[in-house]
Simulated assay, not measured.
Amino acid sequence: MNDNGHPLDRRRLLAGAAAASAVTLTGLAVASTTGAAAAAPARPGSPLITRDRIATAALRAPDGSAPAVAVQADFHARLTAWLAFWSANSPRAWSAPVHVVARIEPAGDALVLHAIRHRRDDELHAGFAAARRDAAHLATLASLHHHFPSVRVRPDGTVRVGDGAAGFTGASEQVAFAVAACRELWGDAAATAARWPEHAGRVLARVGQPADPASHVGWAAFTRTSLRRGLGTESYE
């Protein structure tokens, strides 16, 4: 089953948000920082900017408030690209995300994700909810591993995401995700940490994208297909 279609306006909105974020990252349109943005430390070459949205989605704090937050420019650009990717691979009945419930850490280079909300049939729904350990939870982890090197699930199900270039590094969190995805999304109960590349490789062969899952190309393919399977966009059967 394949559910690739998305309304053009949704794609345009997400692409526009990603492009605007990329411009900000290059320094052509960096917003001025205020308050907490000026106080929090930043890595050299990565200015703090103040934002209240990621792509088309409004940022919401876990307590429901909607403050503008200080975030490093490159991290915000990656978050924008990630959310556009998550949305583009979600079922077409879902709107673009309208809320990202999260907390940005003081340095502006990490986020703790609680929920992603979209509209369906004019009602708000959670496409990802930290407390709900389901296929959509694993799918969202896949999307984050596709875009970031540091993705850690905390005991309450929230996910801490650290800034950095995407790619497989061999981190224990990446291996744990790969094993869980093979077992719970792809039905391979025999997957283990020691032999996960073999099992993930079978997944890639099954979907017609044979590659070493520990390579850059293979990791990107494995996380992308796991996202689509977990959100129910494509079954690959």
Score class of each variant (00 low, 15 high):
S172N: 12
A194H: 04
T158N: 04
R152P: 01
A180D: 11
P149N: 02
A176L: 08
P213T: 02
P155H: 05
R228N: 03
V151F: 13
E198T: 08
V153Y: 06
G162K: 09
G187T: 12
L185S: 06
S172G: 10
P210V: 00
C182T: 05
E173A: 15
F168M: 07
F168N: 13
D163K: 12
P213F: 00
A181G: 10
A193Q: 14
A194I: 11
T223E: 01
A221T: 03
S226H: 09
A193P: 13
L144M: 11
A221V: 00
A205V: 15
T158D: 02
V151S: 08
A211Y: 00
S150W: 14
E173G: 11
R152E: 12
E173T: 15
D163G: 13
V207H: 01
A178E: 02
G218P: 03
T192E: 15
L141Y: 10
H216D: 15
F148C: 08
W219C: 00
A189W: 01
R195M: 13
G164I: 06
A211H: 00
V217W: 02
L185F: 09
V179S: 06
A171E: 14
A176M: 05
R202W: 07
A171C: 07
A214E: 13
A190Y: 06
H145P: 10
S215Q: 05
V217C: 01
S143V: 00
A180K: 11
D188H: 13
L144Y: 09
W196S: 07
Q174G: 10
A211F: 00
R228P: 05
G208V: 08
A178Y: 09
C182G: 07
S143Q: 03
P210Y: 01
V207Q: 01
Q174F: 07
A180V: 04
A214R: 14
R202T: 11
T169C: 13
G164S: 07
D188V: 14
A214C: 13
H146I: 00
T169R: 12
A166N: 12
R202D: 10
T225L: 05
V203E: 02
A220K: 14
L204M: 05
A194E: 06
V175R: 11
G157P: 04
F222Y: 04
A194L: 07
R195Y: 03
C182A: 08
G201A: 07
